[in-house]
Design a protein around this nucleic acid. Structure first.
Lengths: 137, 137
DNA sequence: ATACCACTTCAAGTTAACTTGAAGTAAAGA
DNA sequence: TCTTTACTTCAAGTTAACTTGAAGTGGTAT
């Protein structure tokens, strides 16, 4: 069974070592054994860290993560887990929808300013922002 | 030309009035006239606020927004504007990619726990997480 | 006119998520 | 063995983005 030092994990997940220790302080990562006083991680820790990053990336706070991880999937808590995942899933749906919309808007802005530059270089009439806004609705 | 009170704007954009004043302190919203000492907003302010929300939503910090808004689109700053928008656009691309991936992962997790519940209710063998992870890569 | 209530300013406080500093320990290489 | 370097703990500090509190002002309904 492969093991990893804190600097291995830090590099692999692009997280500072202090953050890994911080997550352990919060109880998000636990049962990390030590060789001497150095942390030794295994694949189970990495899997859990992946989950932490996934939930955090999608807007869950660390304290919500503490709540989620406090539920025992082998008990009646299962319903709470499913509920929370369901709610979070719908939140991420909405986030995606809005992010895509914002993305299109930013692309339009970029296009608008590029067209201004081109028009200036070629001494053409400047574009109007009103002509760019239409496409979304 | 329609005008709006701070409470109108606050409701329409789901932002507390304090946040609108805060953005004005930062110089992100400016030239907001007063009737007596009450702020009076117009459509140009709303358009600017939309832009602020769009950029903020997509991960730009308020200080980056200050920088962007400090550029004068009628001067040679145009290149800087296009550069910044271009860079931001690519960042949002990447954000979207990761968010979609995370979204799929969360859906799988939800499905996994739902299948556990079903398996328990029907006294079937429990699913294994390994069978859910495959689909992404 | 008057009373109310939404607005105003400005300084200080809050929160989440780290990050840094100081002081100590121990694994790994010469 | 010795030294270097990467780790350790724990408390305190930082940052962004607001938010709150206190004290005052003025538009609007009666």
């Amino acid at each position: 069974m492969p093991t990893y030092s804190i600097s291995d994990v830090s590099k692999r997940y692009h997280l500072p070592q202090t953050t890994l220790r911080y997550y352990e302080d919060l109880g998000l990562l636990y049962d990390v054994p030590r060789r001497g006083n150095h942390r030794v991680y295994n694949d189970a820790h990495l899997a859990r860290l992946s989950a932490i990053c996934c939930f955090k990336n999608t807007g869950m706070t660390l304290s919500e993560l503490q709540t989620l991880f406090s539920y025992d999937e082998h008990s009646a808590d299962l319903d709470k887990i499913i509920d929370l995942l369901d709610r979070h899933c719908r939140e991420v749906d909405e986030k995606l929808r809005i992010l895509e919309q914002n993305h299109r808007q930013i692309k339009r802005k970029r296009q608008f300013y590029e067209d201004i530059r081109t028009a200036r270089e070629t001494h053409q009439p400047l574009p109007k922002w009103a002509d760019y806004k239409i496409t979304d609705f």
